[in-house]
Design a protein around this nucleic acid. Sequence first.
DNA 1: TTCATTTAGTGGCATATGCCACTTTTTGGG
DNA 2: CCCAAAAAGTGGCATATGCCACTAAATGAA
Lengths: 166, 166
Amino acid sequence: MGERRSLSKGITVTQAALPGLTLCNNAMLRRATRKLGQFYDDMLAPSGLKATQQGLLYQILIGDEPAMGAIAAALIMDLSALGHTLKPLIRDGYVETFADKDDRRVKRVRLTPQGLIKLDEAMKLWSLAQQRFEAMVGKDEAARLRAALDDIAALDFDMPPAAPSK
Amino acid sequence: MGERRSLSKGITVTQAALPGLTLCNNAMLRRATRKLGQFYDDMLAPSGLKATQQGLLYQILIGDEPAMGAIAAALIMDLSALGHTLKPLIRDGYVETFADKDDRRVKRVRLTPQGLIKLDEAMKLWSLAQQRFEAMVGKDEAARLRAALDDIAALDFDMPPAAPSK
DNA sequence: TTCATTTAGTGGCATATGCCACTTTTTGGG
DNA sequence: CCCAAAAAGTGGCATATGCCACTAAATGAA
């Protein structure tokens, strides 16, 4: 009666008994991200920007010539990852960087005029995507979801499982 | 008073008036995914697997020697992306593929004995991560979140904004 | 049967992200 | 003032994901 698969100390369970990945918070989050990402990317396609790039340009716009570290922190993104992601945007002339006047370690970022124009174009498409999405799930539900996601982003996972005590 | 940034047809707004990216459903989803991904990855680190890999191995386990297309569909992932993601797991001997008996186009996937052992090891760590996360946000809230994410994953974004009519 | 079409994957190319080892600056004590 | 430690980025390497063009195999209609 049905395949058996071991799963932890010799225990064997019938396949039907294994819960889907629907139980993993992380897997579900990733899956939804892929799905929604495809939608936003499709909607933004006419601008030539990916949703991630549009989001990054916007983050740069609202920051006041933000330092890379500041952007990375705001997006909860690895600093080096940010650096990599920024390259295509610099290459395409949408963004430029410059050293901070007081601290030469700090590299600040700003949009170029073309970057501003491109972002402007992308924001209109983003707005449509946002509207279509919220029309489907409901504005309230969307807001609730964003709030929940913001809470997760704010969690503090510090200390290892076992508290070092004392 | 304050920087000004154009944002759409010559309109200029003061920086403070620009809402953060907190309003973009997609950006928030990505941000939370990065955050939670780091946590699950950290927790799984002792196993040498990334959370994505653990999730993929699990998906393969619960499928009955699933075809690549079936896995991709279940994870809402591009078929070629799945192929790429599978490579390191095949290289490390956790997974193996074989052609379907009746349809030689179809490539099926299964865990190797080592893959099963490794997954077993990873699932224990995953369980801890899951527990810690749910202890922080609450089991109910986590379940609600997963449900919301599942709804998003099930959305049908088909038809382009403007209905092609007749 | 035969061929156009559809289906399932592959490979190449590009972006998205992370970690780690390093380099350059700053900072904070001695 | 000098040097060890901290802070901010960079580069290299690896995985995560997608899109597109292409190949092989299966299907269906003529």
